[in-house]
Computed example of a mutant assay.
Amino acid sequence: MKTLTIFTPTFNRASLLPRLYDSLKAQTNQNFVWMIINDGSSDNTDEVVKSFLEENILEIEYIKQKNQGMHGAHNTAYKNCKTELNTCIDDDDLAPKNAVELILDKWNSLGENQQKYSGIVALDAYFDGELIGSQFTTESTTLESFYLNGGSGDKKLIYRTEVMNQYPEYPIFEGEKYVGLGYKYLLADQDYQLATLNEVVCLVDYQPEGSSNNMWRQYYKNPKGFAFIRKEQMKICKSKKRILKDAAHYVAHSLKSKNGNFITESPRKFLTILAIPFGLVLYLYTLYQNKKQGGLYQR
């Protein structure tokens, strides 16, 4: 059995998949499975993936489902993953040719200490090689401590499959397609450290219509999902400044979803009350930004 699953949620991105496929074929270590999760695409994704399967070069698992959004695709990946490790590489990204080799070499170097870690956190870069954010200064970290201590930028997470399956799935809210992936990562942070790898294992190409470039639209169209993640973060986060920020966002998303019980449902009622003025401003600013951006690209 292979050690690593690279899973790729995809939605109407058939034109981009061959680029990622080529980067995976070029890997110096082929000890991985590529799991493609077709999240309700209406383009020719089936035909493109069929051509990959017919080449019979990579071990590919192809799963089709109704559109549930990125977090729903992650639920599917974790449920179906049979390897020790897993990581997500999006359909618009690439893997450097030594990505799998770097990941597995790092994992094997941990030896008997592997069980202490939820996995590995490594670096992302743009296609031109420019590093995204900062490097790591310690041998291990949690995501919360990394960012609270001045760390920055998107990072590539490689998790133990059994760890991800210890925690609840991402919730699915009717009519919404986005719940922050950080929910499960935050839960894992409470029980494990991540081993740090100061090597680039993913090259990122942020698409104009993608979530990273359209977060205000996501806020507008998925308020229940965002209220959920902010509420969960308020339960766990140790920084009062961060909790107040989460409370303001929680208020804004609750106003958008017309949840009149948001104070009684809050795990931090006093801070939530304090955050109401800030949440109201954020709610109004979300409305403004959504109108300014002219609608929603809904993944």
Results as ranks from 00 to 15, higher is better:
E112M: 10
S140L: 08
D205K: 06
A275I: 02
T196H: 07
S15Y: 15
I158P: 10
I236K: 04
N198E: 11
I60D: 09
L187W: 04
L271W: 12
D93P: 02
N86A: 03
E112P: 11
E101G: 03
T3C: 08
Q27S: 02
Q193S: 04
L194H: 03
E162N: 15
L123W: 01
Q135G: 13
D124H: 12
Y285R: 11
Q190R: 09
T286K: 00
G129H: 05
Y62R: 02
M1K: 09
V100N: 00
P208F: 10
F262K: 02
Q293F: 08
L280M: 12
N80L: 13
E265T: 09
G111I: 03
F136H: 04
Q233M: 09
L143F: 13
P168F: 06
Q289C: 11
L186F: 06
Q114P: 06
I37A: 07
L296N: 09
T28E: 14
T272V: 05
G260P: 06
N38I: 01
L131E: 06
L123D: 00
A99I: 05
E162A: 15
K184I: 12
L280D: 02
A125D: 06
Y78F: 11
S118R: 07
T286H: 08
G182C: 10
D105R: 07
K258F: 13
P277D: 09
T10Q: 04
T83R: 00
E209D: 10
L110V: 07
T10C: 15
